[in-house]
């Protein structure tokens, strides 16, 4: 009933042709690009990795074995749990949280400055200088980071030149390059939602708080941050999800000991040739990330609807 009313209203507002187009395009987009592929992945993840001849045959039945493998490892192994993969899984999530926090700390001041202090030309210039570096593609950027963080890279040379160190620091092994690269990769996705939220804050509120004697820390803590919370949540969610799912940066910038969970997934798909297991791993990552985000939103009392603003 209400759906029908919404439909007629929607058609009246946009006209039949435009209305049908929008509805059709959105439906197609959602079904074809989002729902169907994921459903196939989901389906895949519950199947055995069979040779092509046996697909659809009597052996092609649903199973939890791929998920079990992530948790318990292969049946023959000595350990109770698949510690190697599980720890990579956990490390990836923790590292993504860490990167998200770094980005939040970096971007909140920038976003506030852009929204409330920088005026006219300065503001536009700043935004431009934030955006333009993203014209450089991800791979190029990652390798450039590798070069400047390398043993004979600019940073090491400079530190040695200053006499602060006598041996070059292995930034790659220490994962400094990785974290820098990851933090930088999604900075815009943190800045703009916060910028949007902060910009709509009435400046008079900041001044009113100041007039009542409040210092800057309290103004941010009590007035600006609560107001910008949906923007902060939306920025954090995006950065967290994308960092947890990043592939290029960990592959290029990661030290020999660091493995990102996405790399495991790719291994199953490519070298392992085991698509069902790769799917199961990918789905596990997706579910864990969504669950984590929903949990955090619960903790900070943010409704999903608010993020869309």
């Amino acid at each position: 009933m209400s759906l029908k009313r919404w439909m007629t209203g929607f058609m009246e507002k946009n006209g039949l042709l435009v209305g049908l187009y929008i509805l059709g395009a959105v439906t197609l987009w959602i079904v074809l690009m989002i729902v169907l592929p994921q459903l196939f992945m989901l389906d895949f993840s519950f199947r055995y990795n069979l040779p092509p001849a046996e697909i659809g045959g009597p052996k092609d039945v649903y199973t939890l074995s791929n998920y079990k493998y992530l948790i318990y490892g292969s049946a023959g192994s000595a350990a109770d749990y698949n510690w190697i993969d599980l720890s990579v899984f956990l490390q990836t999530i923790i590292a993504a949280v860490f990167v998200t926090l770094i980005d939040l700390a970096l971007c909140y001041p920038i976003a506030y400055y852009l929204a409330h202090t920088a005026k006219g030309a300065t503001g536009r210039l700043l935004i431009l200088s934030l955006i333009i570096p993203y014209w450089v593609n991800e791979i190029l950027r990652a390798f450039a980071f590798r070069i400047i963080f390398g043993a004979s890279g600019v940073i090491n040379n400079f530190l040695v030149y200053l006499g602060l160190i006598d041996q070059p620091i292995d930034f790659i092994r220490e994962d400094v390059a990785l974290y820098t690269g990851l933090s930088y990769a999604y900075i815009l996705l943190m800045i703009f939602p916060i910028y949007n939220a902060v910009e709509s804050l009435d400046r008079n509120q900041v001044e009113a708080a100041r007039d009542m004697g409040s210092g800057w820390l309290r103004i941010h803590w009590r007035i600006v941050i609560p107001f910008a919370k949906p923007g902060i949540a939306s920025g954090c969610t995006m950065v967290f999800m994308l960092t947890a799912g990043a592939l290029a940066a960990p592959q290029i910038l990661g030290g020999p000991s660091s493995l990102w969970f996405t790399q495991l997934i790719v291994q199953w798909f490519n070298t392992g040739g085991n698509w069902p297991r790769g799917s199961a791993y990918a789905i596990a990552l997706l579910i864990a990330c969504v669950a984590f985000v929903l949990f955090m939103m619960r903790v900070f009392k943010i409704r999903v609807g608010e993020i869309g603003r």
Binding site: N204, Q205, E207, A208, M212
Partner: peptide, 11 residues
């Protein structure tokens, strides 16, 4: 001093 703003600026 305390200022009451043109638009009040309540929180």
């Amino acid at each position: 001093t305390a200022l009451i703003f043109q638009n009040l600026a309540l929180f």
